[in-house]
């Protein structure tokens, strides 16, 4: 096994339409790759709220809006921008384009283990503020659910 982070060829540039996302699976991971016109970005495909597939969200500038309950996640930072009071974030991945392919940098196997689920490295290891389990969905959740 390599001890360096590995760049993975994921998809062709033309696989991802402008201002849309697509998900790519690697073993256990699912990564959402977005085409922002001037660049591609990659984040984990799971919304920290209720695991919504972020790759299916509407892109708004450099954020994506989760299709389930409209949480908004920064595509460059991985930070959750809405709701404003949460410290949750999603993992981000470095991306480069080479010969028409989108390459995504996968962290080391070992490094991956260090990053326990629910802990955000970018926020100095602060744990994600646990959301109390809710009995129903409140209004702000319903507002943006379509259909």
């Amino acid at each position: 096994m390599n001890d360096k982070p590995k760049w993975i060829r994921t998809a062709r540039c033309e696989d991802i339409p402008l201002r849309e996302g697509r998900s790519v699976r690697f073993g256990e991971r699912e990564i959402a790759i977005f085409n922002l016109g001037d660049r591609f970005v990659a984040i984990s495909n799971r919304c920290p709220h209720r695991d919504g597939p972020l790759s299916e969200g509407i892109v708004s500038g450099n954020t994506v809006v989760c299709p389930l309950h409209a949480w908004k996640v920064g595509l460059d930072t991985g930070d959750v921008e809405r709701p404003a009071d949460t410290l949750a974030c999603v993992e981000t991945f470095r991306v480069r384009v080479e010969a028409g392919f989108i390459l995504v940098e996968m962290p080391l196997e070992g490094a991956e283990k260090k990053q326990a689920p629910g802990i955000c490295i970018e926020h100095g290891g602060l744990p994600v503020v646990p959301k109390p389990p809710r009995m129903g969905i409140d209004d702000s959740d319903i507002r943006n659910i379509r259909a």
Binding site: I8, V24, R25, F26
Partner: peptide
Amino acid sequence: RHPTQFIQIEPIERIPL
């Protein structure tokens, strides 16, 4: 409308396990 509209993209180069 788009080739990957309904397709789950698989990585071209799989992660070595």
